[in-house]
Design a binder for these strands. Structure first.
Lengths: 343, 343
DNA sequence: CTGAAAGCGCTTACAG
DNA sequence: CTGAAAGCGCTTACAG
C-alpha cells in the first residue's frame, strides 16, 4: 500500500493524503475523516519520508554487541552502562536501535549495511569474545563509533577502556594492607579471556608485593557463575589447604566460594578467610557478610560514551582513547581495615 | 552531502556512486577506489534508500516504556522480559528501537509520529505509572502494539497481564499451609499503585483464609528499596510486637526487613519470623537464608509478546488479552514445608 | 480547501 | 564498465 493507491481509494489527491498524514490544518474535517478512515481500514503506514532524508538526521544511534553471544539485558555491566548512555543520548534527542545479531549470523547482512539503511548517525560497540569481521568493517566506515573495552582503529572511532591493570593491583594492595599474605584466586575456565587477564594481573601484583604464589590456591570453575565458585572452593577445601584470602574473578564466583567455605569447612568470613569479588553486582550488598569487590564506574562509562559519540557525530572531536579507573568497593568480607592493621 | 554532490566530487555519475554503495560487481576497481575515497573524505552516509520504502519492511520494532519514568535497563522485570523478547524478535529478523522519552517530554513529538517516520512495524509497550496521551494515540493507530501489564484497547493491539490476584493468594496459602497465622505486610509508600494492589490482594486473601488483620503489622516505607524495608521493620520492632510471618511488596524490602529483624531484634529467619518477597531478583538466591518470593515468568512473557506481536503484524491473529500465571519460588525463608506442617 | 507539478535522494533496467 | 533516464514514495510551494 502506498500513498498513490490510498489516495485513489479515498478519492482525493496524493497531496491531500500527505497533508492529512502530517497534520496540516488546511484540510476540511470531512476529508480528514474520510482519509483517516481509509488509512485505518488498510492499516496504511507511510514510508520513510523524503523530508527526513533531506535533513539527513535520523536521530538514531546503533547499539552493537560485538561477538557471538547475543545482547543480554540481564548482564549488569552492560545494562548499567546502557542506563546512563541511553538517558544521555535521549537528552541529546536520539533513540537507540539494538541490532539483533541472530540475523547477521544467517544472512550475509552487515552492521554497516543496516546502519546505512537506517541512516544511523553513530554506534556504540560493546565488546564480547570473538569479534566479527562485520564490526571491523563498521569501525573502518564513516559511521562514528565508540568502543567499550574494545580498541577501535577507524578514522571516526574512539574507545573507552577500563583500567584492568590498576584494578587488580588494588586488590592485592588491599589484602596486603590488612595483613593477608597467603592469597588465592578462583577464576572461570582457563579459556576465558577476561578471567585470564584478571588472573595474570593478580599474579603480577602478588609478585611485585613479594608474595609467594602457591599453585594449590589457584582454582578454576567452568564459568563465572555461583555454582562454579562453590565447586572450586569445595575442591580446595577437600585438598586440605586454604589461603587466608581469596580474590574471585567474578562476584558470583565469590558468592559461591563463600558458601562452600562456610558450609564445607565451617569457615567464618572474614575471620578465617577473606574474600574480594569482581564486577560489583547488586547481590554483593546483601550477602552475609557483604562482599568487597572491584567495581567499574559504569555510570561514568555510559555518560562518557554518549558525550564522546555526540562530539564525534558533530565533528567536534579527534578520535581518542580514554581509560576509566576502576574502584575497590570496601564492604565487610575482608574485615575492618583498622582492626586488621593491628596484626 | 547527497549522492549528486558526491558524484560530482568523484567525477562520476550518480548511478556509479549508487552502485559502489550497494556493492555491485560491474564497477572497475579504480572507479570503486576513487568513489570510496571521496565518500570517506566527506564522511558521506547515504540517506534511507527508496528500495526499503518500496518493500515497506523496515525490520524495526519499537520499545515504549509508558509513563513519566525513563527506561531503566537495571530493572529486572523489564530486562528479563526484553531478553527473551529481543532474541525471539531477532530470530524473526527484527531489530529493536528504544524510544527516548526525554524528547517527548520537551517537544510535541509523539510515539506515533516517530513510528511512522521510522516505519516501525510494531511496538511493545511496557507499563509504568502515569501513562501519557501519546501512548493511547499509538494504541489507537494502525501500528500493531502489545501491552505488558497495560490494557490496550486499539484495533491492532493485544496485551499480556500478569495474574496478580492469583499470586498474592498463593503467598497466604503458603504461609497458611506452614502453620503461620499471624501475618504482616511491608510495602512501599501508600501512593504506589503496585504496592497498593499487592497489599489489597494480601488483605483479601487473609480474609478469605479467615485470618485476623492486625494493623500494627502492616508497615510502609518510602520506596521499594532495601533501606525502606530495614526502616519499616525496625519501626515494627520498636513498637514491640512482631508477626510470625511477613510478606514484603518487593524483594529489596524483604532483604531490608530481614536485616532489621536479625540485627534489631535478634530474630532467626525463619525460626522466629518467616519472610516472602516479591519479584524474584537475583539477590534473593544469595541472602542468608535465601528468600522465598513471588516470581513472574518473565521469560515466558517476553517470548509470548514476541510471538503475539509477530502474528499481529502479519494479520494472523485477532487482538487478544492473555494472562500469565505467577509462581511462588520456594527457598528457605519460610522453613521447610514438611517440618512446619507437623505443628 | 484541493490538487497538478516540481522536487527530494535514491535505485535500476537499459543502451552504449 | 559507465551513465542518461525513468522510476520509487513522499513533500511542498503555488495556483485556483
Amino acid at each position: 500500500m502506498n500513498i498513490k493507491t490510498l489516495s485513489k481509494l479515498a478519492g482525493v489527491s496524493i497531496s491531500t493524503v500527505s497533508k492529512v498524514i502530517n497534520g496540516y490544518a488546511d484540510i476540511s474535517e470531512e476529508t480528514r475523516k474520510r482519509v483517516q478512515q481509509v488509512m485505518q481500514e488498510h492499516a496504511y503506514i507511510p514510508a520513510n519520508s523524503t523530508k527526513s532524508s533531506a535533513t539527513n538526521r535520523s536521530g538514531l544511534i546503533g547499539v552493537v554487541f560485538a561477538g557471538k553471544q547475543n545482547i543480554d539485558f540481564s548482564h549488569s555491566f552492560f545494562n548499567e552502562i546502557m542506563n546512563t548512555f541511553k538517558s544521555q543520548m535521549g537528552i541529546l534527542g536520539y533513540d537507540l536501535v539494538f541490532f539483533s545479531n541472530e540475523k547477521f549470523q544467517q544472512s550475509g547482512e552487515t552492521y554497516l549495511a543496516r546502519c546505512r539503511h537506517l541512516q544511523i548517525e553513530g554506534c556504540i560497540i560493546l565488546s564480547g569474545q570473538d569479534v566479527e569481521e562485520s564490526v571491523h568493517e563498521l569501525d573502518q566506515s564513516p559511521v562514528p563509533c565508540i568502543g567499550i573495552d574494545l580498541v577501535l582503529a577507524g578514522q571516526n572511532s574512539s574507545h573507552i577502556l577500563s583500567d584492568s591493570h590498576n584494578n587488580i593491583t588494588k586488590v592485592v594492595e588491599h589484602f596486603y594492607l590488612l595483613g593477608y599474605r597467603e592469597l588465592g584466586y578462583i577464576g572461570s575456565n582457563r579459556d576465558s579471556e577476561i578471567s585470564s587477564i584478571r588472573e595474570q594481573g593478580f599474579r603480577n601484583a602478588m609478585q611485585s608485593y613479594g608474595l609467594t604464589i602457591q599453585e594449590e590456591w589457584f582454582a578454576h570453575g567452568q564459568d563465572f557463575y555461583e555454582e562454579s565458585g562453590y565447586r572450586a572452593a569445595k575442591a580446595m577445601v577437600e585438598r586440605g589447604s586454604l589461603p587466608r584470602a581469596i580474590f574471585a574473578g567474578s562476584d558470583l564466583l565469590a558468592i559461591g566460594a563463600m558458601r562452600a567455605f562456610k558450609k564445607e569447612a565451617g569457615c567464618r568470613i572474614p575471620e578465617d578467610i577473606a574474600i574480594i569479588g569482581c564486577d560489583d553486582i547488586d547481590a554483593c550488598k546483601y550477602t552475609s557478610p557483604p562482599i568487597t569487590t572491584v567495581a567499574q564506574n559504569k555510570a561514568k562509562i555510559g555518560r562518557l560514551a554518549a558525550m564522546m559519540l555526540n562530539d564525534l557525530i558533530h565533528n567536534q572531536m579527534q578520535t581518542s582513547s580514554v581509560t576509566v579507573e576502576t574502584e575497590l568497593i570496601i564492604r565487610e568480607s575482608c574485615g575492618s581495615q583498622i582492626a586488621r592493621i593491628g596484626l
